[in-house]
């Protein structure tokens, strides 16, 4: 119990250090504030190590994630600013414009198809196509793939949203799909 509690305490101190470090901005960003930031980042793995002595490394990581989150939120509540910038403007009430909504439906639908089934299927093929070639045990490759697939999906979706050259996107996407399918089925 003592090591777990010490670990949690260290995580709290780490968050306070990050708070002190990030609070200063621009000209106020002195060496001391950079030191606090560095100490904050350093203390997090130390706290995990200390908790891990008693609870095991898996639980120590979970405790650290939860503790950092709660202590940061508490610091934010404590340091919140209250600005009174006047009343919000009342907004016009309008009837829902069904015609405009219907006109915009097709491009929205195309984006949805690209982001959800297309990126999702491509992510699945890319993930399996790459991970099954890794030099680990098959079960480990499979588990790695299952947990990284949504991240690859996110990457592809981000690429779809950010790419300005649509032709390059479609060409690269098709090439990626063909290579992955070849890797899976060949």
């Amino acid at each position: 119990m003592i090591f777990t509690m010490a670990g949690i305490l260290l995580t709290n101190i780490a968050t306070i250090c990050l708070y002190r470090g990030w609070l200063a901005e621009g000209a106020n960003k002195s060496k001391a504030s950079q030191g606090f930031t560095f100490a904050g980042w350093l203390l997090i793995p130390v706290s995990i190590y200390v908790s891990g002595l008693e609870s095991g490394i898996r639980f120590a990581v979970a405790f650290a994630i939860i503790t950092v989150c709660f202590s940061a939120w508490l610091l934010i509540v404590r340091a919140r600013t209250q600005r009174h910038t006047g009343r919000e403007r009342a907004k016009h009430r309008k009837a829902l414009n069904w015609r405009a909504a219907a006109q915009g439906l097709i491009p929205q639908l195309l984006t949805a198809i690209a982001l959800i089934p297309v990126c999702g299927t491509l992510a699945a093929f890319v993930t399996v196509g790459i991970t099954h070639l890794l030099p680990f045990e098959r079960v480990n490759n499979l588990a790695l793939g299952i947990f990284t697939m949504p991240l690859i999906w996110a990457g592809l979706a981000l690429w779809y949203m950010a790419e300005t050259n649509r032709m390059r996107l479609y060409l690269c996407g098709s090439l990626l799909a063909a290579c992955s399918a070849f890797s899976v089925y060949a």
Binding site: Y19, W22, T81, R83, H84, G155
Partner: peptide, 23 residues
């Protein structure tokens, strides 16, 4: 989550900012 992180350019600078009040 990933797009939110990429969209948030001041992720560290604003990490502890909370502006309450009327706005």
């Amino acid at each position: 989550i990933v797009s939110g992180v990429v969209a948030h350019r001041r992720i560290f600078k604003d990490a502890f900012t909370f502006r309450g009040g009327a706005d």
